[in-house]
Amino acid sequence: MSFAQPLLTLLQRTERGLDAIIQPAVFACMAALIGVITLQIVSRVLFTAVGWTEELARFLLVWLTFLGATLAFQRGRHIAVTFLVDALPARLRKLARFVALSVVLALMIALIVIGYRYMQVQSFQKSASLRISMTYVYAVMPFCTAIMAWYTLVDLLETLVHGKPDTPQEPQP
């Protein structure tokens, strides 16, 4: 499968590029969330409460959760019970990994469709305080799920080419 190696290298670079975009976005969401909650607390204690802070904090938390889950997924940090698969012979372990990744990919595709439909259903609705379209709030689900599906495709190709994907590692500073 030497023809697959250049494709795999390109996909891995794309994966690292996505990671380089998502990681600062998670940091920015966290910083904004801290700032908004601080403003909310200070305004309640010292002045009249700023009405939009609670809604913005909620929306930031939703985006932060999905973006953070995407980073955790890419790094292999989600909970996994592998003792049974680890006990299998190498060929069966590879097959089990391939089947598991295929199931994950199917789930991600289903979540993309469900998230997109839900986003469309809610597109007419505006948020109470900020008056922004709820499409922007709900867009995070199909967006992040599509990225996780991409990561799964890369893992599937790595499994086919190498037998197992490279061990997820933290990006080097």
Rank of each mutant, 00 (worst) to 15 (best):
R117F: 09
P173N: 11
Q125C: 00
T159G: 11
V140H: 03
Q169P: 09
R16G: 04
A49V: 05
F47T: 09
Y118F: 09
R117A: 08
R131V: 12
T167L: 15
P89H: 04
C29D: 05
A69C: 10
L11K: 10
I37L: 13
I132H: 12
V42I: 14
A100T: 12
R91M: 04
T145I: 01
T135E: 08
L84H: 10
R97K: 05
L71K: 01
V42F: 07
L107P: 01
Q172A: 13
R93N: 05
W52I: 12
Q120M: 12
A57V: 03
L105N: 06
A31K: 03
L156N: 03
S129H: 11
I114Y: 14
T159M: 12
M119A: 06
Q40I: 02
T9C: 02
E54P: 01
V137F: 15
I21E: 02
H162S: 11
Q23E: 13
I109A: 15
G68Y: 06
T9I: 06
L157M: 13
Y138L: 08
A87C: 01
A96K: 08
K164P: 02
L111D: 02
V26Y: 00
F3T: 03
A28N: 01
T38A: 12
I41E: 02
V104C: 08
Q172Y: 10
L10V: 03
V36N: 02
F73R: 11
T152H: 05
I109T: 11
S43A: 03
M134N: 04
R131W: 07
L84D: 10
L10A: 11
E15R: 09
L92P: 01
W63L: 02
Q74A: 15
L84W: 12
M141F: 15
F124S: 15
T14P: 02
A149E: 06
E170D: 09
L95M: 12
A110N: 08
A106S: 13
Q120D: 09
P24C: 05
A72P: 05
M108Y: 07
V50S: 03
L153R: 00
D166C: 00
P24K: 02
L11C: 14
P89E: 09
L64R: 06
D166V: 07
V103L: 15
L107F: 15
H162P: 05
I112P: 03
D19Y: 05
W63Q: 03
L39W: 07
Q40N: 14
K164S: 15
L101A: 09
T135V: 12
L156H: 06
L61P: 01
R77I: 00
I37C: 10
V104T: 14
